[in-house]
Deep mutational scan, measured.
Amino acid sequence: KELVSALYDYQEKSPREVTMKKGDILTLLNSTNKDWWKVEVNGRQGFVPAAYVKKL
């Protein structure tokens, strides 16, 4: 599985998104959309802005 690192804090703005803190390591589930990537963090799945994470 592919991992990404959070470059910035992000506070979810809808139920489809997830909150992350800078430095968090997230499991990348889907990166086909260039703007929003689906990740899993702390057992929750949702979307984060692609520009806020980088692949490890």
Rank of each mutant, 00 (worst) to 15 (best):
K1E: 11
K1Y: 15
K1N: 12
K1H: 14
K1V: 14
K1W: 14
K1P: 14
K1L: 14
K1R: 14
E2N: 12
E2V: 15
E2T: 14
E2W: 14
E2Y: 13
E2D: 11
E2A: 12
E2Q: 14
L3Q: 11
L3I: 10
L3P: 04
V4D: 02
V4F: 12
V4A: 13
V4M: 08
V4Q: 02
V4E: 00
S5H: 13
S5P: 02
S5W: 15
A6N: 00
A6I: 02
A6C: 13
A6D: 00
A6T: 03
A6L: 02
A6Y: 01
L7A: 06
L7W: 05
L7P: 01
L7K: 08
L7E: 06
L7M: 10
L7Y: 04
L7V: 09
L7T: 07
Y8I: 10
Y8F: 13
Y8E: 10
Y8V: 11
Y8K: 12
Y8W: 12
Y8H: 11
D9Y: 05
D9V: 02
D9K: 03
D9F: 05
D9T: 06
D9L: 03
D9P: 06
D9N: 09
Y10G: 00
Y10S: 01
Y10L: 02
Y10F: 07
Y10P: 00
Y10T: 00
Q11H: 14
Q11K: 13
Q11T: 14
Q11Y: 15
Q11N: 14
Q11P: 06
Q11R: 11
Q11D: 14
Q11G: 08
Q11C: 13
Q11V: 15
E12S: 15
E12F: 07
E12A: 15
E12V: 06
E12G: 15
E12N: 08
K13I: 08
K13T: 13
K13N: 10
K13C: 12
K13S: 11
K13Y: 05
K13D: 06
S14K: 07
S14H: 12
S14N: 12
S14Y: 07
S14I: 05
S14G: 13
S14L: 08
P15Q: 10
P15C: 11
P15R: 10
P15V: 10
R16M: 13
R16N: 13
R16H: 13
R16Y: 14
R16F: 14
R16L: 13
R16E: 12
E17L: 06
E17I: 04
E17R: 05
E17M: 06
E17W: 04
E17Y: 06
V18K: 01
V18E: 01
V18D: 00
V18F: 13
V18G: 01
V18H: 03
T19Y: 04
T19V: 03
T19K: 04
T19N: 07
T19F: 05
T19W: 05
T19M: 04
T19R: 06
T19P: 07
M20R: 00
M20T: 03
M20C: 07
M20H: 01
M20I: 15
M20E: 00
M20Q: 01
K21M: 10
K21S: 09
K21P: 00
K21W: 10
K21D: 04
K21E: 06
K21C: 11
K21N: 09
K21G: 05
K21H: 10
K21R: 13
K22A: 13
K22W: 04
K22G: 04
K22Y: 06
K22P: 03
G23Q: 03
G23E: 03
G23A: 04
G23I: 01
G23R: 03
D24R: 03
D24Q: 14
D24C: 07
D24G: 04
D24W: 11
D24S: 06
D24F: 04
D24K: 03
I25T: 08
I25Q: 06
I25W: 05
I25D: 02
L26S: 02
L26F: 07
L26M: 14
T27I: 15
T27C: 12
T27M: 13
T27D: 04
T27V: 15
T27R: 12
T27E: 10
T27L: 14
L28R: 01
L28Y: 02
L28S: 01
L28K: 01
L29N: 02
L29P: 00
L29K: 04
L29W: 06
L29T: 04
L29M: 07
L29H: 05
L29E: 02
N30F: 08
N30P: 03
N30M: 09
N30L: 10
N30E: 15
N30Q: 10
S31I: 08
S31F: 07
S31A: 13
S31C: 14
S31N: 09
T32E: 14
T32R: 11
T32K: 12
T32S: 14
T32V: 11
T32H: 11
N33H: 12
N33P: 05
N33K: 07
N33I: 06
N33W: 08
N33G: 11
N33M: 09
N33C: 11
K34W: 08
K34A: 13
K34V: 11
K34D: 11
K34M: 10
K34R: 13
K34T: 11
K34Y: 09
K34I: 10
D35P: 02
D35L: 14
D35M: 14
D35R: 14
W36M: 06
W36H: 03
W36T: 02
W36L: 04
W36F: 07
W36P: 01
W36I: 03
W37E: 01
W37M: 04
W37Q: 01
W37D: 00
W37F: 08
W37I: 05
W37R: 01
K38D: 04
K38E: 15
K38I: 14
K38R: 12
K38P: 02
K38H: 13
K38V: 14
V39C: 05
V39R: 01
V39G: 00
V39P: 00
E40P: 00
E40Y: 07
E40Q: 09
E40A: 09
E40S: 09
E40D: 09
E40W: 07
V41L: 15
V41E: 03
V41P: 01
V41R: 13
V41T: 11
N42K: 09
N42C: 09
N42I: 04
N42L: 08
N42D: 12
N42W: 06
N42H: 11
N42A: 10
N42P: 05
G43C: 07
G43F: 05
G43S: 06
G43I: 02
G43P: 01
G43E: 06
G43H: 05
R44A: 06
R44Y: 06
R44T: 07
R44M: 08
R44I: 08
R44H: 08
R44E: 05
Q45K: 11
Q45M: 11
Q45A: 12
Q45G: 06
Q45R: 11
Q45H: 09
G46I: 04
G46P: 01
G46W: 04
G46Q: 01
G46Y: 04
F47V: 07
F47P: 00
F47R: 03
F47H: 05
F47T: 03
F47L: 09
F47S: 03
F47M: 08
F47E: 04
V48I: 09
V48S: 01
V48C: 03
V48D: 01
V48L: 02
V48Q: 00
P49V: 02
P49N: 03
P49M: 04
A50S: 13
A50C: 08
A50T: 05
A50N: 02
A50L: 02
A50G: 04
A50F: 03
A51I: 11
A51F: 10
A51H: 13
A51V: 10
A51M: 12
A51L: 10
A51K: 14
Y52F: 14
Y52Q: 05
Y52R: 05
Y52S: 12
Y52C: 13
V53M: 06
V53P: 00
V53C: 14
V53A: 03
V53G: 00
K54C: 15
K54G: 11
K54R: 13
K54L: 12
K54E: 13
K55V: 13
K55T: 10
L56A: 07
L56E: 08
L56G: 07
L56T: 08
